[in-house]
Amino acid sequence: MAKDVEEKTSSIKIQKKPLRLRIWNNRGFYLMFIPVFIFVLIMHYWPMLGVRYAFFSSKMVPGGGIKWTWVGAQHFINMFKEREFWMAFKNTLIISVVKLLLNTFVAVLISIFLNEMTSLVCKKFVQTVIYLPHFMSYAVVAAIFTLFLSPSSTGMINETLKDWGWIDKSIDFLHISSMWRPVFYIINLWKETGWGTVIFFATLSGISPELYEAAEIDGATRFQKMRYVTLPALSSTIIIVLILNLAKVLNIFEPVFVLYNNRVFDSSDVISTYVYRKTFMTAATDYGYSTAVGLFKSVVGCILMLGSNYASKKIRGRGII
């Protein structure tokens, strides 16, 4: 009987209305979609035509405007020869990936910690406190930390450490190459971890209490409940967050730009700051070169995104794009 029904169902051919008719029937929706479509075309696709400039050299001309001269792949050859470029590329990967892993790890930890809190007032207070730094601009954050970490006698951290007798001489936290990245990660953790907990905390709130009750009946301790109930429930979200962020790791600019300085270029200069300096800090900018670096960054970003998608398919059984 069931087999008969199945056969009949599969043999029924769904009659689709012609596309033009479907569009006409839904013309109101299509009309509403037009502005969005035009916006996407203008704002996202039209600028992409600019990648052609990666193969041209630019020169300013009197009266304003730029004269473009075809140079083929010369910019890419120059770029690959440049020590500064490779240094920036390496720094971009290291800083972004470490920042991503650290932020995610600490956000998960804090989420679990908040989840375990029984006092609602305390939980809300902690959440508010850790969310707040997210709403400060990086320029303000940089100014605050620069002031706090100053090696001068106005630097609060150094003076406190000196008063405690822990150090004799001020430490120039933001100007020593080996210290810059750790300090940068800490500042980022302070600013962004709270906000990062939102998504994990939402997942935790969705875990069925029955699972905890069952674990309790089985005699699980609090730590074991975290280990065998909470973490597995979070794992899928953690992976999604990591994968989604991995695709955009090369876009880091603002947090580095406001905190880096000449002495730590070796460990802090990223592709975006490198492009900024090459483009805006000279009177004779070759926009072709800057575009070539940007294009290279986009290609690597695209590869990372496809890799993330592949990883997502493997781990979760479905992709993210």
Binding site: S58, M60, G64, F280, M281, T282, A283, T285
Partner: peptide
């Protein structure tokens, strides 16, 4: 300097 550079390269009289 950076803003002037931008004006002079991206604009026209």
């Amino acid at each position: 300097a950076a803003t002037v550079q931008r004006y002079l390269t991206t604009g026209t009289v």
